[in-house]
Design a protein around this nucleic acid. Structure first.
Length: 277
DNA sequence: GCCCAGGGATGCG
DNA sequence: CGCATCCATGGG
């Protein structure tokens, strides 16, 4: 991928492996606004203004190194897509979501966000996160930062209910009180199975959410989060009616191995958008 | 009014 | 272990 680095700006001159709208809309990030050929994207206390046309993408931000990594610009997606396309089941999904990239987001922000995501819909998830930012995050002028862990520790169960977390409010409160920033410094260095175990020990985090945190927040690509959509895809492809997500996870992870996370995103985006029954 | 959402916790056998 | 049931709440 041809990328020019300027001061406060990244210019991507090769758009076949990067579609901003697809990348933002495929359910891995909740803090963004798309307006025509322009988007605002938020992570932690940082912001990027992105605009694009057919031939180039401009990422305007004071944190170019952060967003370079955020959008995974070092990874060659054409190579990944070429390998995965050999799988017949994935071929049309990859054609449809050819511009998806897996975002490298902040582990703590992803952890909080995906606790909210459980048995929830994306619009509500976004509203709840926005509430937490505007009530507990730092005012950055044009937007609110994601609250730091110390800031979020001030939130009560009632605050979480007001944020629309419903029955997840108690779980969130308990997990936020228990977590410390050093947990995340340790987490990033742990082997995969220990990360998984640690995440599962926290309230509000089960297998699917743990896998999402690892994929989008810890850079672990050989995980395959199975949500309701992937469950539907699986039943559709295999002509079954299972609800055993543990089994589906195991099968698909064994099949796609180190590319599981990518395969999962292509499946998820394609089938969700095409309203698979 | 009903069904569903990027599921998880709990209890029971 | 596996399995069933319950859980808030807003959108479609």
């Amino acid at each position: 991928m041809k990328i020019k680095k300027e001061k406060d700006r990244l210019i991507i001159l090769d758009t076949q492996d990067f579609d901003v709208v697809q990348t933002l809309n495929c359910g891995q990030i909740f803090r963004f606004v798309i307006n025509g050929n322009e988007a605002l994207v938020y992570s932690k206390d940082k912001c990027a203004k992105i605009d694009w046309d057919k031939n180039k993408i401009e990422i305007n931000t004071k944190d170019i190194d952060y967003f370079y990594n955020f959008f995974d610009l070092n990874t060659d997606y054409s190579k990944i897509k070429k390998i995965l396309k050999e799988d017949e089941l994935l071929s049309s999904a990859i054609d449809y979501g050819a511009g998806i990239r897996i975002i490298n987001n902040d582990a703590y922000e992803i952890l909080i966000s995906f606790i909210i995501s459980a048995n929830n819909n994306i619009k509500r998830i976004k509203n709840s996160i926005e509430y937490l930012c505007s009530h507990f995050g730092k005012n950055m002028g044009n937007y609110y930062a994601f609250p730091t862990l110390d800031e979020l520790k001030k939130a009560t169960i009632k605050d979480y209910k007001n944020a629309g977390l419903g029955y997840r409010a108690e779980q969130m409160y308990e997990t936020v009180q228990k977590l410390e920033i050093k947990d995340f410094n340790r987490l990033i260095k742990m082997p995969k199975d220990e990360q998984y175990k640690f995440l599962l020990s926290l309230k509000g985090i089960g297998e699917k959410v743990a896998n999402c945190i690892m994929l989008f927040g810890l850079g672990v690509k050989d995980v395959f989060p199975v949500d309701t959509w992937i469950n539907k895809v699986y039943n559709n492809i295999t002509n079954t009616k299972t609800t055993d997500r543990k089994k589906i996870t195991k099968e698909l992870t064994n099949k796609y191995k180190e590319l599981s996370g990518y395969a999962q995103q292509y499946f998820f985006y394609y089938y969700r958008d095409n309203k698979l029954k």
